[in-house]
C-alpha cells in the first residue's frame, strides 16, 4: 500500500505553535468573530429597515425625542477612543509599555464616558416615560443601543485586562502583543457599529 506521509527532518521546533502562526491565527479568528457580530446586529438592522419602511412617520416623530447633541458627543468620544486604541496597538508593537498603558487607560476612560453619557440619556427617556414598549422605534432604539452598550462593557473589560497584562509586562518580546491587537479589533468594531447606529437612530431626515 502506498503511503501518503513521510517525515522530514526539518520540523524540529517544539510542540507549541510558532509565534507568527499564533499571531496570524488569533487575528484571523477575531475577524471571523467580528463577522458574526455584524450579523448579530444584522437582525436588528433588518428589523429597523423593515419597520422604518412600514412606519416612516412614527420613526420621524419618535426620533425627535432623542438628543442629537448627546448622540454626537458619544460618536466623537467613541471615534477618539478608537484613535487611542489604534495608537495603543502601535505602542505595543514598539514595546513602549508606558505609552501602551496610558493609551489603553484613555481608551478605557472614553468607554466609561460613553457609558455615563448613555446613562443620562436612558434616564432622561425613562423620566419622560419612554420605554421599550412605547412604540417600535423605541423598542429598536433600546434593543440596538442596549446591545451596543453591552458590547462597550465587554470591550472595556478586555481593555482593563490588557492594562493589567501590560502592567505585568506581558508584551515585552516576540509577538506577545497579539492580545492588544486582537482586543483593539474588537474595540474598533464597537465604534464601527455605533457609526451606523448614530445616523439611523438620531438623524432621521
Amino acid at each position: 500500500m502506498s503511503s501518503t506521509v513521510e517525515h522530514a527532518e526539518s520540523h524540529a521546533h517544539g510542540h507549541g505553535l510558532g509565534d507568527a502562526v499564533t499571531h496570524n491565527a488569533a487575528k484571523f479568528g477575531m475577524w471571523l468573530f467580528l463577522g458574526t457580530e455584524i450579523l448579530l446586529f444584522g437582525g436588528l438592522f433588518a428589523a429597523y429597515a423593515l419597520f422604518r419602511a412600514k412606519y416612516p412617520d412614527l420613526f420621524y416623530d419618535s426620533h425627535k425625542k432623542l438628543d442629537v447633541t448627546l448622540g454626537a458627543i458619544n460618536t466623537i468620544v467613541l471615534i477618539f477612543s478608537s484613535f487611542t486604541m489604534a495608537l495603543a496597538v502601535s505602542a505595543s508593537q514598539k514595546r513602549n509599555r508606558n505609552w501602551l498603558m496610558i493609551l489603553l487607560s484613555i481608551t478605557f476612560i472614553c468607554g466609561a464616558a460613553f457609558g455615563v453619557n448613555k446613562y443620562f440619556e436612558y434616564s432622561a427617556k425613562f423620566h419622560h416615560h419612554i420605554y421599550p414598549e412605547t412604540n417600535i422605534f423605541f423598542a429598536l432604539y433600546f434593543m440596538m443601543t442596549g446591545l451596543h452598550m453591552l458590547h462597550v462593557f465587554i470591550g472595556m473589560g478586555i481593555i482593563f485586562a490588557l492594562i493589567i497584562m501590560a502592567k505585568q509586562g506581558r508584551f515585552k518580546e516576540g509577538n506577545r502583543y497579539t492580545p492588544v491587537e486582537v482586543g483593539g479589533l474588537y474595540w474598533h468594531l464597537v465604534d464601527l457599529i455605533w457609526i451606523y447606529l448614530f445616523p439611523l437612530l438620531y438623524l432621521i431626515g
Binding site: L32, G35, T36, L39, L40, F41, G42, G43, L44
Partner: peptide
C-alpha cells in the same frame, strides 16, 4: 459561524 448569530438575535 455566519448563520447562528441571526437566530441568536
Amino acid at each position: 459561524l455566519l448563520a447562528t448569530p441571526v437566530v441568536g438575535i
